[in-house]
């Protein structure tokens, strides 16, 4: 199994790499660029939660067709935090485009709550999805964000979180998943989620 993180920002990618390596027992590559050959060698591509929407977009958008084509052929795509938002079309955070894989746009959380939404909050499961195997309903995960992905198709929402409003905190379309929280920073539940995903792709 080949796993890589696409690095389009600056931040802590180390913990994400460590978490996927712990679970998959394989090395996880950190890539700055992609091409057809590289992407065809991968089983899972991770879009990490580092940086700003517009900056990440300017790096990522040129790979849109490449990623969409690979995903159609079965590549697993795992978006975390900003990486989840980049699965959508656009964001209120700034100009630029996401991959447009989901019909969705990122909005800012309501202003009557403290922003960023920072800390441990619960994920209420909307369906019993294999992505959350052995993870209890309303388990705590670690969040650090001010924007969330608002989806047109609520059938894709696996879990929701309440902070000022209910927003999608875990989504899934086949092997394309997105989580607004940081599973690599969410203790045992987070590692379990990553492990479930690796199993889903392996099957």
């Amino acid at each position: 199994m080949n796993i890589a993180i696409l690095n389009y920002g600056v931040g802590n990618i180390f913990s994400l790499k460590k978490a996927f390596e712990t679970v998959s027992r394989k090395d996880v590559a950190i890539l700055k660029i992609l091409d057809k050959r590289i992407i065809e060698s991968l089983d899972i591509l991770i879009l990490p939660g580092v940086g700003h929407f517009s900056k990440a977009s300017s790096h990522l958008f040129k790979y849109k067709d490449l990623i969409v084509e690979a995903v159609d052929k079965g590549l697993g795509l795992f978006g975390i935090c900003l990486g989840m938002q980049l699965l959508g079309i656009s964001s209120e955070e700034g100009p630029g485009y996401g991959l447009g894989i989901m019909d969705a746009e990122s909005r800012i959380l309501p202003s009557h709550v403290k922003l960023p939404h920072m800390g441990w909050n619960t994920v209420e499961l909307k369906s019993r999805d294999e992505f959350f195997t052995d993870i209890k309903d309303n388990s705590y995960f670690y969040f650090a964000h001010s924007y969330y992905l608002s989806l047109k198709n609520s059938d894709l929402v696996v879990g929701e979180t309440s902070y000022g409003i209910f927003f999608p905190s875990a989504i899934r379309m086949g092997l394309i998943v997105g989580v607004q929280f940081h599973p690599e920073k969410s203790g045992d539940s987070g590692l379990r989620l990553i492990s479930n995903y690796v199993d889903m792709v392996r099957r």
């Binding site: 180390f14 978490a19 940081h182 203790g187």
Partner: peptide, 12 residues
Amino acid sequence: VRKVAMNIDIPF
């Protein structure tokens, strides 16, 4: 920092 990060899976 690297040693601590290796040992934890919570925010730091």
